[in-house]
Write a protein that binds this DNA or RNA. Structure first.
Lengths: 257, 257
DNA sequence: CGCGTTGTTGATCACGTTCAACGAATGTGG
DNA sequence: CCACATTCGTTGAACGTGATCAACAACGCG
């Protein structure tokens, strides 16, 4: 995740020109730029993305996107949340009624369609496939962390982990602590954490009472001490100290390439 | 999953010669055969596999292997179970104390070490990377199904899904129904389903009382009507009707290659 | 036979769900 | 401008499911 920060370092450009997108300076888009321009897309809340038969990739530029799944009786589970900088590898070969990608807030992203690209010798492009593997592999790792969360953490732990994770991923550090604006509703949070909206609201109140966070509004909160918040969850969010992990991956990748 | 069956069809050979393994006739091993022989490994119950810095792949030939994760206080969660025919893509860049691969029963598998292979131009091998991507992507899909299970299914539903899934994956069809020998303990099952061993045992008794399965011993059971069992879980196991899904993937892969 | 491990069952309790009511914020039409 | 409807978030009360602690049975093994 957060690829734009680490992939190409800093180039100072950042020009948000028409058609071009800043986040596409990440490694994936950089690889694909030579093979054709990615397409920019804007989504409203609730809109869905589909990749039925051809492989597509989405790099989130702004907003939140959820990897969703529903059961026959309507129960919904958000498998994963992707925010600005994340690359979404969609599920393939599903009809879209059980699993889909959905924007939880107004979202902009750039779409890379690999399936319809018959003009270039995509199949021979080892660097591209290697990058695709890396993204899918990272996604599996992120899924597994959230799976452990749902399997073994109680409500309080899940919520504290969520609040800390959101701070790392979309918060900004201020003098008073981490300031976060949640781009999703209580129901979305509940579906992500495998809880009920009422339970989420109740635990938010308990977290507030324990002075772990301060709520400025239902959607805005402040984390005065993020270490204290993380200590309440026996699991570190996948994005907190991930810098060293990404170095390790780069090590074998470098050796292989 | 179950790649050996679908990848190369049937060639009738099946020679389990020394060093060579039947399951390695699957697509992945077939791709790698040209680049060097895979290594055969035998594991006892509880033994762990590690891939710290270099990328390794394991194709399970026999037994069960678990993708495990533990918290600081000892709580364990089995993220995924891999049985004969499955390809395990290990997590990278983790220290091994939080996440690891473990054999839950005596297991044989063949190991493919891609990181130490400096002699061949691995980095340029598009077909290999494409296959790696496909495996990682399939793994992510399997994780997501289990994640929904843990997030939204109650105990009864989880257990019924598990019993049906095991029947599909390691059971054999007889005249009296599907016959399954469980290669894992109640504690392992509990850690897979996010429950307690006592709860698993209790629900097994309820399932038995409802005549959905017949237990011949604590480890052996018979499913007279697998459709009835599956109806108790509002989610189909990732291996049941997966044939069409694998075709779809082949479709775009074919187009890309 | 004693011993340790594994699986089962019981009693009690806590956590999260369900159903319900209510307040706050927002938008609409008279 | 106000009445009204709608949506979202919060809080309360009752309930049910699964966890915890405990005892005990079944089994393998020295």
């Amino acid at each position: 995740m957060r690829q734009a920060d680490t992939a190409l370092g800093q180039n100072g450009q950042g020009g948000e020109a028409n058609g071009d997108c800043r986040s596409c300076e990440a490694r994936l888009c950089d690889l694909l730029r030579a093979r054709g321009a990615p397409r920019r897309r804007l989504l409203g809340r609730g809109e869905r993305l589909s990749a039925l038969t051809c492989l597509k990739l989405w790099t989130v530029l702004d907003g939140v996107v959820a990897f969703c799944s529903t059961l026959a009786d309507g129960r919904r589970q958000v498998v994963y949340l992707s925010v600005a900088g994340d690359v979404v590898v969609p599920p393939l070969g599903v009809d879209g009624t059980e699993v889909w990608i959905e924007a939880l807030a107004p979202t902009s992203l750039c779409e890379l369609d690999l399936g319809s690209r018959t003009d270039s010798p995509l199949g021979q492009d080892a660097a591209l496939w290697a990058e695709l593997f890396r993204n899918a592999h990272e996604q599996a790792k992120a899924f597994s962390v959230h799976l452990v969360t749902l399997g073994r953490l109680d409500g309080m732990e899940r919520v504290c982990l969520f609040l800390a994770e959101m701070a790392w991923r979309i918060g900004c550090k201020t003098a008073a602590g981490w300031r976060v604006r949640l781009p999703l509703s209580r129901e979305d949070i509940a579906d992500y954490l495998g809880l009920n909206p009422e339970t989420v609201s109740r635990i938010f109140s308990r977290v507030k009472k324990a002075k772990l966070v301060t709520f400025l509004s239902p959607t805005d909160y402040l984390v005065p001490d993020i270490q204290a918040l993380q200590r309440r969850a026996p699991l570190s969010p996948p994005n907190a100290p991930a810098k060293e992990q990404r170095r390790d991956i780069a090590a074998w990748e470098l050796r292989a390439l």
